[in-house]
Nucleic acid binder design. Structure first.
Lengths: 251, 251
DNA sequence: CGTTAGCTTGAAATCTGTCAATGATTGTGG
DNA sequence: CCACAATCATTGACAGATTTCAAGCTAACG
């Protein structure tokens, strides 16, 4: 049984992530689809501040980047298609990291006021957004675990497992293969490794025949083994886990 | 000007953190105080799962601990008095880290249903809770920055600056001194350092005359210098930063 | 007064970073 | 369509921060 299978849903693919919470019905999806979204392009390597808009990444990859006083900056979360770019519109707290495009990105945004009205009429949508927020938080916490407890090899393996799952959930993985347009320097910045060491680590994964790369395309040759190496469990990536005792891994 | 000064507020000290958001009025505080809280004691080194209750730490220190499949476990956030122990009651997402008491702890909790009704009548309370959630998220993101970009010395210094601020906000700091009952092993588990290295790092801070310890009591001898060393800015700890361009440090 | 948990210290091992140079790939303008 | 530039990947040698191991020390506590 494939927990991350693509469920047929009544709406554009960009809302698949919200639909995946299992909290929405067809009416909610219809309302979402007709909210009057504004499209917005962001060039690779450019920052973008969604302000108080609800902003969903439609295509491309990005990070939330945290800039501190001392010139220190680091990526705190990876944003893939379907993800909400910023939760300021929910929490009202402005001192948050800013979205930074890694590849050319297409975003969809809607102003806070519109979203507020939408949530009043469709409380399930608010619940879905909060569930996404929780998963986002949980993902950053898992990153803390990675940085704290895992070696470079485990860290990179774990990262690949996570990306595969999140892209598969959006229907962007084809037979364990997916487009992965991040530079090794960017992966390093996210995983707190130097670009050089990311390179060596990827080589080691290739040597062990766990992954294969062809340009920007990557395939996981032995996902089970990779997950085992990484200590990867998809618990932290799932919305509303109702039965925690259920099977943890895909078939 | 002291940004973290204790404002006189209409309610028990335990709600000082929520009051500090600046979103509540006297009526909200009154409603909070009379919610029918249940006291709950947790022994040192014991875990506690708040489930879907709103649960606020009243005294003691704790961590949110994340346990993953491979036996890997790490602390992802520090909980001090006034902090909400778990946001499951907001997000509905159960696959979250569990509270783990470092010292003997006293908690106050109220069931989800009661809290829901409260928030319907007092929407500002929901806003305050969401603001706390945002700060909590932000704090974990800052931890990512620490683990990724800071040396052991900077990391420990940063941690001390953060704790001092958070305790001061709750009125628990007296002339740069506060009770700090964590073992070096626990600090290490949070900052991804070995207990041995935490020890050496604290020695270095003492040698530089930035801190002094007397038993479980610690005093920051030169907070400015410590903050400078750590690259500490309190942006990420504050609720609803309205004017981002304002001065960043305390006087 | 013994026991236990926590703190301190030293030496050796190791992972990862830095530096520097060389290939490979991609995109672009002529 | 090719040549050039720029970015990215790769490789090797070396340095350094942090971990691990092992042992003694201290202090709190029953």
């Amino acid at each position: 049984m494939d927990h991350a299978r693509v469920v047929s849903e009544p709406g554009p693919a960009i809302f698949r992530r919200l639909w995946g919470t299992g909290l929405l019905d067809a009416g909610d999806m219809h309302a979402l689809a007709h909210l009057g979204w504004e499209r917005r392009e962001v060039k690779a390597r450019n920052p973008f501040d969604p302000g108080e808009n609800l902003c969903i990444l439609s295509s491309g990859f990005g990070f939330r980047q945290r800039n501190t006083a001392g010139g220190v900056h680091s990526f705190v979360s990876l944003i893939v298609p379907g993800d909400i770019c910023s939760y300021v519109f929910v929490t009202g707290n402005a001192s948050q990291p800013v979205f930074s495009a890694a590849t050319p990105c297409m975003l969809m945004q809607a102003p806070l006021q519109t979203v507020s009205l939408l949530c009043e009429k469709h409380p399930n949508i608010l619940a879905a957004i909060l569930s996404n927020l929780a998963v986002d938080k949980s993902t950053t916490e898992e990153l803390v675990t990675s940085l704290g407890c895992r070696t470079a090899l485990e860290r990179v393996a774990h990262f690949l497992c996570e990306v595969e799952f999140r892209l598969r959930r959006m229907g962007l993985v084809d037979n364990m293969q997916f487009q992965f347009q991040l530079t090794q320097a960017e992966i390093g910045e996210y995983l707190a490794l130097s670009a050089v060491h990311v390179n060596r680590t990827l080589q080691e994964l290739r040597r062990r025949e766990l992954i294969r790369t062809q340009g920007a395309r990557i395939s996981l040759l032995d996902r089970d083994e990779l997950q085992k190496l990484a200590g990867f469990s998809l618990d932290y990536l799932q919305d509303r886990v109702q039965h925690r005792a259920a099977a943890r891994f895909d078939a």
